[in-house]
Amino acid sequence: MPQTVAFTKGHGTGNDFVVIPDPDGVLELNDDQVAVLCDRRFGIGADGTLRVIRSAAMERGEDAGTRASAGAAVAAGAEWFMDYRNADGSRAEMCGNGIRVFARYLADTGLAVVDEQPLLIGTRAGVKTVTRSDLGFEADLGTWRVEPDDVLVRARGLGVPRPGLAIDVGNPHIVVALSNADELEALDLTARPQMQPEPPRGANIEFVVPSDPLVREGVGSIRMRVFERGVGETLSCGTGVAAAALAVRHWAGQAAPDRWSVEVPGGTLGVRMLRVRGDLHVLLSGPATLVYSGEVALA
């Protein structure tokens, strides 16, 4: 008999997820089952799954890296761990839209309280802090790293290859600057862009266009489309939005602002840079919506 599991469908600016409660870690979802759940014709349909599991249960995880991340979450006092999987079933380090949906699920089901103090959530990219914000929820993604060497990106509709800036915000990204909105619209992201050299873990690829003017009343503004690793083009990518803002800020130089508004096909997200205990962190804010709940039989 197929196993029946409960789920909730949620999204953050159109970046959608199947949320699966598994507090004690009794489910064993393989890559094919995740892919079927995320299939938009034969399953529920989503860009990925978010398994809601206690960090202590995740310490029995499938690989040493995950077990170490779960152990660090337990040590930091993060009761819950976001086990994020891409639509193809592959495991990913972090998801900026997903963690807001995850926090919304915990709050709405009474599993955690977000209002009184920051909520700590374990991920494969470390423990993240989520708070309420004017846009919905804000997640502290932590520090970031800009790689020294550009990556050449080829994409359908782009004409000629373009250099991309490699930025790691807990997961890898390549950000490509385009000259105008027409170039952004002409992109065909039904096919995966090619990168040279190919990053060892793959990467999400963001294509960005600055607004004119770039900065208004101290806030930078850009538009973006994204091809997500293990998914394809999505309406939004939270960590990609942060990476895109960081890349444009890097290119703009020292006078660039620390607050950004980023427009994606699914809506608008906010990004800001803030010093936390001496280190410069990047924070992502935006809405998180739970759409419906149900039960599904696992293939």
Rank of each mutant, 00 (worst) to 15 (best):
I99A: 11
L214F: 06
G170R: 06
D83H: 15
S90I: 03
G278A: 08
P163I: 04
V176Y: 01
G159T: 11
I44E: 04
D168I: 02
D16R: 05
P148E: 09
W144L: 03
L235G: 00
G266R: 12
M94P: 08
D168T: 09
V127W: 00
P199N: 12
L290D: 05
A242T: 14
A78E: 02
F102P: 00
G25D: 05
L27I: 03
A203R: 08
A244H: 06
E147N: 06
D39I: 09
A46D: 06
D140W: 04
V146Y: 10
R249C: 05
V231H: 07
V52C: 00
G220Y: 00
I121M: 03
L246D: 00
G136W: 13
R104W: 00
E228V: 08
Q33K: 05
A243G: 13
G71L: 07
G286A: 12
G71P: 02
D31M: 10
A72L: 11
L284D: 09
P200I: 12
R67E: 08
V226F: 07
R162Y: 03
V215E: 14
A64S: 12
T234L: 01
A57C: 13
E233C: 01
D212N: 12
V169Y: 05
T239L: 09
V101T: 11
R162F: 02
A76Q: 09
R156P: 00
F81L: 11
G126E: 02
G294N: 13
D39S: 10
A87T: 11
T109C: 11
F7T: 04
V114I: 15
I53Q: 01
A191R: 13
G253S: 10
L37I: 10
G220S: 10
L269D: 00
D212Y: 07
K128Q: 11
H11E: 11
G61P: 01
A297K: 03
S221H: 15
V19L: 15
V18E: 12
L283C: 14
R91N: 01
T131A: 03
V151I: 15
L141W: 06
A247K: 00
V26N: 12
P257T: 08
T143N: 06
A46H: 02
V113M: 07
N86F: 01
A46W: 05
A75I: 04
D150Q: 14
L119M: 08
P210N: 05
V262G: 10
F17R: 09
M224V: 00
T49N: 03
W144A: 04
